[in-house]
Each structure stands twice: as C-alpha cells, then as structure tokens.
C-alpha cells in the first residue's frame, strides 16, 4: 500500500511540483495517471521511489515511511520498487541479460558486480523475467540491436528481476508506435494480474488509459484533481482535468501548461 498524506514537493529552483497530495493506492491496483505535460505526473511517480525527494507531508510505501535523507533506507526501498522509463534507459552496449541483471544489484555484493560474476540463482531469475516478457531468445544480444518495443520489454524484465512489490512506469509507451505500445501495456497489465504487483503508470493516451486502468488519477498544477474508477473517467471528467477540450488543437490553456 502506498499512502500520500499532504505531500508537497518544492524543487530547488522554487517550482512547486506537488501541492498537498492525499492519495492511497492499494496493493495490486493498476493505476493510470493522466494530465497535461508539467502537471506533476512524473514528480508524483518519482516521489514514490525517492528519485524526487518530497519536502513536506508524509509518504509511506508498504509499512515504511519514505525518508529521502537516508541513502541506505532509500536504497532498500528502491530494491522493492521497480521503475520503467520513457526512453527505456538500458545500457545499450551490454547484453540484454546483463541489463536485466542490473535489477539484481541491490542483492548482489559489490565484488560480484565489479567482476560481472553473478550468482546462478540471480541469472535464473533474470532468465525467468525475460521469459515472462517473451524475449528470452535475445538474452545474449546487445541491447542496442533490439527494437524500441523489445527494449522496453527488457526494461520490464529488469524490473521483474528485482522481484518488486510496486512497478512505476513513467510514460512507458510515449516513444513507441501504437501496436507496440499496446503490446507493452498488455504485458504490464498481465504482470499486474498474475503477480499482484501494484502498478502505477503515467500515460498521455486517454484511450489506452481507459483500456488498461482499474483506476484513473487526473493531475493539474501539481494537484490531484480527479480520482476514480475507470468508468467515471468520462470525456467530460478528463476535459475538466485538462481544462480544455479534448479535440481542440489550438485552445489556449488557461493554466497548468508550463
């Protein structure tokens, strides 16, 4: 369970990323966050694993309070919270398998990492993760030799290798074509169902959000302005989140679009 109570994020430059966010996300939920660019979706997701430290309020993941000041605690938290990025963030010059093994870092001693000499059980876990996303045949290919969709699935396998309780996905399909995007979201959805991993996804595409989400959260200007089951996320409700028509190309935004 993830609980935000009155969480604020103020960036060093003074920009307020989150304003008084109150939110509870239950175990096993598949939550999609929508909102315009700059609405605070990324900030919300990155607060959960401490990539962005929150400045006031309280955030708990599982039973532990997230403490951005303690490196050790944050590392322990991150070992059970996996993250997927828009640009995949694979090390392109090493093999797919070695990329997936990055997910085992937190439980691998430093000397093993330095020598690149991983335990057999870690490799086994990495192979299982690759099998789950269906690209185990590419295990010894260089990551750079894979297509975008395949690379994103390697990134999902990297997360699975962590054996996480939560998966955070920051715009996971924004740089993929629509069929590939659906394939990746189906993978995430299936993993969420099969393993019961809480999954929080940022999405730009409303139709995709409606197709895969259990619950939709709308953000504007760093605040949560909509929160409800997917059936309630009607066009009217989302237009309210965006503060503009869903179809108008040139409508001048009143606020929130920075």
């Amino acid at each position: 369970m993830i609980r935000f109570s009155n969480v604020d994020v103020v960036y060093p430059g003074g920009f307020q990323g989150l304003k008084g966010v109150d939110l509870t996300i239950d175990k096993g939920e598949f939550v999609v966050i929508v909102g315009l660019s700059g609405a605070g979706k990324s900030t919300l997701i990155r607060t959960i694993n401490g990539l962005v430290p929150y400045t006031s309020g309280e955030l708990t993941v599982g039973d532990e309070v997230v403490d951005p000041t303690s490196k050790g605690k944050i590392r322990r938290l991150r070992s059970s919270v996996g993250m997927i990025f828009q640009s995949f963030n694979l090390v392109t010059r090493i093999s797919v398998l070695n990329n997936v093994l990055v997910g085992r870092c937190s439980s691998t001693p430093a000397w093993r990492s330095l020598l690149g000499w991983y335990r057999a059980e870690d490799k086994e876990l990495a192979f299982q993760s690759l099998e789950r996303v269906g690209i185990v045949d590419k295990a010894y290919n260089r990551a750079s030799a894979l297509s975008g969709g395949q690379q994103q699935r390697v990134a999902i396998a990297r997360v699975l290798a962590q054996d996480p309780e939560v998966i955070l996905a920051d715009e996971p399909v924004a740089s993929l074509d629509p069929p590939t995007a659906h394939r990746v979201l189906q993978d995430l959805r299936r993993i969420n169902r099969e393993l019961g991993i809480t999954t929080i996804v940022n999405l730009h595409h409303l139709e995709m959000a409606r197709k895969y989400a259990d619950r939709v959260i709308g953000m504007r200007g760093g605040e949560v302005v909509f929160d409800g089951p997917v059936e309630e996320a009607t066009d009217a409700a989302i237009e309210e989140v965006y503060q503009r028509s869903l179809t108008a190309g040139d409508a001048a935004p009143e606020s929130a679009a920075h």
């Binding site: 070695n98 990055v102 870092c105 330095l114």
Partner: peptide, 28 residues
Amino acid sequence: KGPLEAADATGSTLLQRDRIAVLPQILP
C-alpha cells in the same frame, strides 16, 4: 544519464552504478 537513473532506481550503490551503467558507456 538514463541508464544511471535506471540503476539508481533499482537500488544499486554508487560503485555498482559506475561499474554497470558508466563503464560500458565509456569503454570504447
């Protein structure tokens, strides 16, 4: 910096991040 952020997000230490995400990139 992407792979570095990814390594951070898995809870790796600085030494592991340098070995796994930085070294392969600078090796050539």
